[in-house]
Measured scan of single mutants.
Amino acid sequence: KRPMNAFMVWSRGQRRKMAQENPKMHNSEISKRLGAEWKLLSETEKRPFIDEAKRLRALHMKEHPDYK
């Protein structure tokens, strides 16, 4: 399984929150809205998620050196 990218790290928490606030909303609609919100974030707002994704990628490479 591939490590999560920055968007996936961010959206994991956001998706849960949005699903709780809008229980009838379909997952595909939640995904569209999350994608639009992510695009509006500044580089500074994205930075912690980018850093976490880098950390996860490095850990994955260490644990699975033969993974392509």
Rank of each mutant, 00 (worst) to 15 (best):
L59M: 05
S28D: 11
Y67A: 14
N5P: 01
R55P: 03
M4K: 05
E29L: 03
S28I: 05
M8N: 12
K24Y: 05
P48S: 02
Q20D: 15
R47T: 08
R2S: 14
I30T: 05
M61P: 13
P3I: 05
R16P: 15
E37K: 08
E45F: 04
N27A: 12
Y67N: 10
K17I: 10
I50Q: 10
Q20N: 13
L40G: 10
I50F: 13
E52Y: 03
K62W: 08
V9S: 02
P3V: 09
M25T: 06
S11D: 06
F7R: 02
L59F: 11
E45S: 05
P65S: 12
H26G: 13
Y67K: 15
E21P: 00
K32E: 11
R57F: 03
S11Q: 07
E52L: 02
M61I: 12
A53P: 01
A19T: 12
R15T: 13
F7L: 01
S28T: 13
K1G: 10
P65T: 13
R12C: 11
P48E: 04
L56W: 04
M8K: 03
F49D: 02
N27L: 08
M4C: 03
K39M: 09
S31Y: 11
G13K: 04
M8Y: 10
R12A: 15
A19N: 15
T44V: 12
E29W: 00
E63T: 09
R16T: 14
I30Q: 05
H26W: 03
F7C: 00
R47F: 06
R15A: 13
E43G: 05
L41Q: 00
L41Y: 03
L40K: 13
P48H: 03
K32G: 06
E43R: 05
R55H: 07
L56M: 08
L56T: 06
N22H: 13
T44S: 13
S42A: 05
M18Y: 12
N27R: 06
F49K: 01
E29F: 00
K39R: 08
S31P: 01
S28V: 10
Y67C: 14
A6P: 05
L56N: 10
S31A: 09
P48N: 00
A6C: 00
R15M: 14
M4N: 08
H64F: 09
L40N: 14
P23S: 05
P23W: 01
R2Q: 14
E63Q: 10
S31W: 10
E63V: 11
Q14S: 05
K68M: 11
P3D: 15
N27D: 12
M61Y: 13
V9N: 04
K17P: 04
D66Q: 11
Q14I: 06
S28Y: 15
P48A: 02
E21V: 01
P65H: 11
M4G: 07
M25K: 03
W38N: 03
M4R: 01
K1D: 15
W10Y: 00
H26P: 13
E45T: 01
N27E: 15
N22I: 06
A19I: 13
Q20W: 04
M8D: 15
K68I: 07
K24M: 12
E29M: 02
N27M: 13
Y67D: 15
R12H: 15
E63M: 10
K54V: 08
N22K: 03
E21F: 03
R16C: 14
M18D: 03
M61N: 10
N27T: 10
N5V: 02
E63P: 08
W38T: 02
W10M: 05
E43S: 07
S31V: 13
H26L: 13
A19K: 11
K62Y: 07
D66W: 02
G35F: 10
K32L: 07
R47A: 12
P65M: 13
E21H: 07
M4E: 11
P65N: 07
F49M: 03
P65V: 11
A36G: 01
R55Y: 07
R16G: 11
R55Q: 07
D66Y: 06
G35D: 15
I30L: 07
S28F: 05
Q14E: 15
D66C: 10
S31D: 15
S28W: 07
R57G: 11
N5M: 02
A6K: 00
K46H: 00
T44M: 08
N22C: 05
K68N: 15
L56I: 10
D66I: 06
E37G: 06
K39E: 14
D51S: 11
D66T: 07
R15I: 09
S31H: 06
E52G: 00
P3Q: 14
R55W: 04
R55E: 07
M25G: 04
P23Y: 00
H60Q: 14
K24N: 11
P23C: 05
